[in-house]
Simulated scan of single mutants.
Amino acid sequence: MKTDLGKIPGYPALRYMGNQGSPILMKINKENIERYHQGRCSLEEQRIVQQWLDSEEAEMSFPENSDLNAIGDRGWKRISGRYHIDAQPKPAAGFKLRNYRMIWQLAACIALLLGGATFYYLNTDWKNSQHNTFAYKEIKTLKGQKLSVTLPDGTIVWLNSESVLRFPENFKGQLRELEFSGEAYFSVAKDASKPFIISTEKTKIQVLGTKFNLRAMATETATTVVVEEGKIRFSGDSNQLQLMLTANKRGVFETKGAIPSMQTDEVYAPKYMAWKNGELLMDNLTIEEVAEMLERWYNVKIKINRPALSGERYTGSFKNPSLQKVLESMSFAVKFSYKQNGQTFILY
């Protein structure tokens, strides 16, 4: 409701809509405020005075010559109740409340202090929460996509297609831990005081500083690690099977059978890292395996319409090739034909 100041200084007028909808105009003066304090106002007059007390006009237009001491207690009770302040005893004899505005100023100060304290508490609590909670980033690659990611410690990760890397924005504590699925090449920054640990769905890799390729595709039963430099500890999810792998060693954790198994062999490591340099290498793979690789590499769909063709094997090496070039080479070596239907290539 809007207040209207009266024309006579010190005697504002307040318009109030009564219960019947008709406006009531009443001057705010010494008499009706004292009557309000003594409980002798009508219900509608009480509402008008209460509205004036709640408005900002009470600070600058309090009627002249009003008995401020008489209404001081009531004003304090209203304000203390609004701001949840313990009630104060009545002022001692001889204490003169010089201006009712002091009450409102005091209330404003208290409100400001309470608001500031609340903001400080909430802000501090939020900062503490941020300090105690790790914020994580998640990087995903799609079919046909490859990315290079630098982690907070300086470790560089090259992500192959259809991979997911999840890591904290800052490595805190005594470990550098992250989660991974897909295929990636890791060049881990050396920090002997903070072991670097990668968790996949089935395995765990722990290093201090090394370079290796990790393949943990969700569609495959085997997780494979090939070390190019340094040493890593490769273990199954139950930690019962473990391998220590050094340069040019490959570790394979297989879950295809009834009992998980782990084995290691000697390999030529650069062959397994070639993909990050745009080299497509296929070493004695079945056509079915090659088809899965090409789907991820080029983001296409490949169908094999001749059942016997799936088991045929192919070996080839390409540098940043087009899909047509790869299929032409394969079709000549393995003796099959292919056709394109949109984003689908059919081998027959």
Score class of each variant (00 low, 15 high):
133 T>K: 09
42 S>V: 02
124 T>E: 14
57 E>S: 08
60 M>N: 08
52 W>I: 01
101 R>P: 04
55 S>R: 01
150 T>H: 06
42 S>L: 09
108 A>D: 14
46 Q>K: 12
57 E>K: 05
96 K>T: 15
101 R>S: 12
103 I>Q: 02
113 L>I: 14
87 A>L: 11
119 F>G: 07
61 S>V: 02
110 I>P: 01
56 E>S: 11
83 Y>L: 07
97 L>A: 05
48 I>T: 01
76 W>K: 03
147 L>W: 04
88 Q>D: 10
91 P>D: 10
73 D>Q: 06
65 N>G: 05
63 P>F: 01
62 F>L: 07
152 P>S: 10
86 D>L: 08
88 Q>Y: 03
85 I>D: 03
85 I>V: 07
89 P>R: 11
96 K>H: 13
81 G>N: 07
99 N>A: 08
136 Y>D: 08
70 A>V: 00
50 Q>G: 09
76 W>H: 04
94 G>M: 02
132 N>K: 15
80 S>H: 04
102 M>T: 08
98 R>V: 08
97 L>D: 02
98 R>Y: 12
122 L>M: 14
129 S>K: 15
80 S>P: 00
88 Q>S: 08
67 D>K: 02
119 F>V: 10
123 N>V: 08
67 D>G: 02
102 M>H: 14
63 P>E: 02
89 P>N: 09
82 R>V: 03
66 S>D: 01
105 Q>T: 12
74 R>P: 00
55 S>M: 05
74 R>H: 05
85 I>R: 04
78 R>T: 02
123 N>C: 08
125 D>P: 01
61 S>P: 00
151 L>F: 12
119 F>P: 03
84 H>L: 09
126 W>L: 13
70 A>I: 00
112 L>R: 10
58 A>N: 05
125 D>A: 14
47 R>V: 01
63 P>M: 01
130 Q>F: 09
85 I>Q: 07
95 F>W: 10
67 D>C: 00
53 L>E: 00
72 G>Q: 06
120 Y>Q: 12
139 I>N: 09
127 K>W: 11
47 R>K: 13
54 D>M: 02
43 L>M: 15
116 G>L: 10
99 N>H: 15
100 Y>H: 10
52 W>Q: 00
79 I>S: 04
102 M>G: 10
105 Q>R: 13
62 F>I: 02
110 I>H: 05
107 A>H: 06
42 S>H: 06
65 N>V: 01
81 G>Q: 06
48 I>E: 00
114 L>T: 11
124 T>W: 14
129 S>F: 11
135 A>C: 09
52 W>M: 03
64 E>F: 07
105 Q>V: 11
114 L>C: 10
130 Q>C: 15
67 D>M: 00
124 T>L: 11
140 K>Q: 15
71 I>Q: 00
134 F>S: 14
93 A>K: 15
149 V>C: 11
77 K>N: 05
75 G>S: 05
69 N>M: 07
43 L>P: 04
97 L>G: 02
118 T>F: 14
130 Q>P: 02
146 K>Y: 08
106 L>I: 09
138 E>C: 15
92 A>K: 15
77 K>F: 03
60 M>Q: 09
128 N>S: 08
149 V>H: 07
97 L>E: 03
128 N>R: 14
120 Y>N: 12
95 F>D: 09
87 A>C: 04
151 L>D: 06
45 E>A: 13
112 L>M: 15
129 S>E: 12
132 N>E: 14
76 W>Q: 04
94 G>C: 10
118 T>E: 12
116 G>W: 08
